[in-house]
Design a protein around this nucleic acid. Structure first.
Length: 416
RNA sequence: GCUGAGAUCGUGUAGUGGCAAUCACAGGAGACUGUAAAUCUCCCGCCUUUUGGCUCCGAAGGUUCGAGUCCUUCUCUCAGCA
């Protein structure tokens, strides 16, 4: 049977779940492990495609919910799909809108973010969050547009229809991501719903692919998304359920911190079919995410943190994170990181980027984004190379010890 | 010289008798993980780990239980007129 993408494993790292491979898509190859660049609204914020390519970005991940609101699915279709629309010639992925069920729903204005273990702020608002913009039912999700307040309704079927109009190479099934505060009972309910939605997504997706075949258009791929929060039995049940369905790959949702990777991700990757790619959704704001992810069987990552934090002044260095807006950098005429090969570090100083960000100059956001994104992309590329060269654990130990310090890094070596 | 207006924490300001210092900017720091994010949070007279204590609204007096807030004088600034 004809396939939208193929995944080839080139090498495995003995004693771990790590593998090196290639995902072939209609728009080119993704050498894995790989960091997928965040391009939510069909743009990598503050960067041109040429800059994304120059920093080593192989593929871009956009968002169905955001593109459905603006410019709209029909505009995306009329443009000829996301690649033509944004002039990106490489592989593309779309997230389903499932994350917005969480960020505009349970998490909306409650001070809950992905890493929260408790609710912050006004407890009254936390229990009666009448302002939230998303409401979940078994059939679908009611959204109130954050743009103009208009009532929207999204189902697994409509998400697939929109994603096929956006026409990225790889789609995500519509899922429900639960809050880190959710109890076991709700986690189960959301997971069961995610499974039902996965089957509905797959069915509608196959119908739409049949239409592509009839029109002699390229096929599009679909990943199922594993949920189940921090519950081992649910995670394993979710991986088993989805692993038996005919998805092209798998997304892993609801993982929030690197400390969970050796447990949560491993429960899943030990069960999922080995010959299909696995994407860890949303993780990658710190190096430990990447090393542990790969070690426990992840092929691709995406995360908005590198660009968002860059815009907010937090920059990666191999010795840990720094805030470029801090006063101390005013006359620091050295590169952000002397060991970084990015365009910014090759050409500009900390003092200059400090000045630009302090002065609200747009170039400061771009230079910082180039650096952070390059840092993460390069780190994963070198992880890939270290597996090929057979020195993954050495690289991991050296990198994380330097980044976090020996004491803080120790937790990431526990199972090595 | 005359007339008028005004002097408040780095800057610009709010505050016209009551447990008193407002807001913004600047400054100091922290956060951000499938992007409602070039955003958000905290600190910003002094001392103290905190509770709390001490000072404060150009200067000096005065009225009052109580004064940036009212009165007097002085100093300075600005505008207009000479």
């Amino acid at each position: 049977m004809q396939k939208a993408i193929t995944f080839t494993i080139e090498k495995k790292l003995d004693g771990t779940l790590a593998r090196v491979g290639v995902i072939q898509t209609p728009h080119g190859d993704i050498k894995t492990p790989a960091f997928i660049v965040g391009g939510t609204k069909a743009t990598v914020k503050t960067l041109t495609n040429e800059q994304v390519i120059a920093l080593g970005g192989q593929s871009v991940l956009a968002n169905t919910y955001h593109l459905m609101l603006r410019p709209g699915a029909d505009v995306m279709a009329a443009a000829g799909g996301i690649n033509k629309f944004m002039n990106w010639n490489g592989p593309t992925i779309t997230d389903s809108g499932g994350f917005q069920v969480f960020s505009l729903g349970m998490a909306y204005k409650k001070g809950i973010d992905a890493t929260s273990h408790s609710e912050k702020g006004d407890s009254k608002q936390a229990t009666h969050n009448s302002t939230q913009l998303a409401k979940v039912t078994d059939e679908g999700v009611y959204f109130r547009s954050h743009v103009n307040g208009e009532q929207l309704y999204m189902t697994p079927e409509s998400s697939m229809e929109i994603q096929h109009k956006i026409a990225a190479d790889i789609h995500m099934a519509f899922d429900e991501l639960t809050s880190p505060l959710a109890g076991r009972e709700y986690i189960k309910r959301a997971m069961d719903r995610t499974h039902a939605w996965a089957e509905r997504s797959l069915k509608r997706h196959q119908e739409l692919n049949d239409e592509h075949i009839a029109r002699e258009e390229p096929l599009q791929a679909l990943y199922g998304i594993v949920q189940g929060a921090r519950e081992e039995d649910y995670r394993k049940a979710s991986a088993t359920f989805l692993g038996q369905r005919d998805f092209d790959g798998y997304g892993i949702g609801g993982v929030f911190e690197p400390e969970e990777v050796p447990s949560t991700v491993r429960w899943i990757t030990e069960i999922l079919p080995e010959d299909k790619p696995r994407h860890l959704l949303g993780l990658g704001s710190q190096p430990a995410d990447l090393f542990l992810g790969v070690q426990y069987g992840i092929d691709t990552f995406d995360c908005v943190a590198p660009t968002r934090q860059a815009r907010n002044g937090a920059l990666f260095t191999y010795d840990g994170r720094l805030n470029i807006k801090n006063g101390g950098f005013k006359t620091d005429f050295t590169p952000i990181d002397a060991d970084c090969d990015c365009y910014t570090c090759q050409n500009y100083t900390r003092a200059y980027v400090h000045h630009l960000q302090r002065s609200d100059e747009i170039l400061g956001l771009t230079l910082a984004s180039i650096h952070n994104e390059r840092f993460v992309v390069r780190t994963v590329d070198l992880i890939r190379q270290s597996i090929i060269d057979g020195n993954f654990f050495e690289y991991k130990k050296t990198f994380l010890t330097r980044y976090y310090g020996e004491e803080r890094a120790a937790v990431f070596f526990e199972k090595d």
